[in-house]
Design a protein around this nucleic acid. Structure first.
Length: 260
DNA sequence: CTAGATGTTAAGGT
DNA sequence: CACCTTAACATCTA
């Protein structure tokens, strides 16, 4: 699930189920998922602290603590958040557990264990250390034009490169390029600034819509690619069979007739 | 039983 | 350096 829109939904969930609450203690269930942090450090720095705010950058979610520092959550391929109470059963695949002083709990659930988490002293420091690019929803047109004008290679590879732009994943990259009518392997340097500006607007609209429908693809317009992203499906615009290929190392759906 | 899955990253190559 | 491809990670489902 987790691309930018999913993580934004998780952020809102954390806002509702975590912000304002005090962490009684933290339980690291899968130490292998810790990043730049020992289990001791995370459990110690979080205990007794209140979650003061949330922040998302690309696919990274942060729970900022009242006395400084933040808990970082990255959802990998199958991560999600789940809130539950003392009378309920703990969600399967809980890898990190927040126990709040009011008895409520929040699970970081990740079946495949491709996600990771940790304690960071500074959110901006973390983003810089990982050399993450600007957030895809926050980036301004001018900066997009600058960056995309400097970058070479396949446009899909660029959209997926988190150091170029943070937040777009495989599914949304396909949707953006489908709507922009650009072949995913098309090189960025072959696109005029005008075309790149169109990609910018489409990208914003697609990501925002994903958030608006809470990532339920059935609520997206039927003419979009995402609800039709299945083998053998016809292109929702022209009816030609969709092509499935590996581009930029990832399974890619596109319409050869419409995307050039 | 096998292949493939929304992400990231190391390794090796051009 | 900037870019490319491939494989690996862990686990489940079609």
């Amino acid at each position: 699930m987790p691309e930018l829109p999913d993580v934004e939904i998780f952020r809102r969930f954390l806002e509702r189920h975590g912000v304002g609450k005090t962490i009684d203690r933290m339980e690291v269930r899968a130490p292998g998922l810790l990043i730049d942090t020992t289990r001791r450090k995370l459990e110690k720095r979080a205990a007794g602290r209140r979650i003061a705010a949330t922040r998302r950058h690309g696919k990274n979610l942060f729970a900022a603590l009242d006395e400084g520092g933040a808990i970082l959550l990255h959802f990998g391929m199958t991560g999600e958040l789940s809130a539950w109470g003392p009378l309920e059963e703990e969600p399967r695949w809980t890898r990190l557990l927040f126990r709040f002083t009011d008895g409520s709990r929040l699970s970081f659930v990740d079946m495949r264990k491709f996600g990771f988490f940790g304690f960071v002293d500074s959110i901006d420091g973390y983003l810089a250390d990982r050399s993450l690019g600007p957030d895809a929803l926050a980036i301004e047109r001018r900066e997009w034009l600058e960056r995309s004008g400097r970058r070479r290679g396949a446009i899909k590879a660029a959209l997926l490169d988190q150091s170029f732009l943070a937040g777009v994943g495989n599914l949304y990259a396909d949707e953006i390029l489908f709507q922009a009518k650009i072949h995913p392997a098309r090189s960025l340097e072959s696109l005029t600034p005008k075309v790149r500006a169109r990609v910018f607007s489409i990208m914003k609209r697609v990501l925002q819509k994903g958030i608006d429908v809470e990532v339920d693809f059935n609520r997206l317009p039927r003419r979009w690619l995402l609800p039709n992203r299945e083998k053998g499906h016809p292109c929702p615009r022209c009816g030609a069979a969709l092509t499935v290929a590996t581009i930029a190392g990832r399974t890619t759906y596109f319409c050869e007739r419409e995307q050039r």
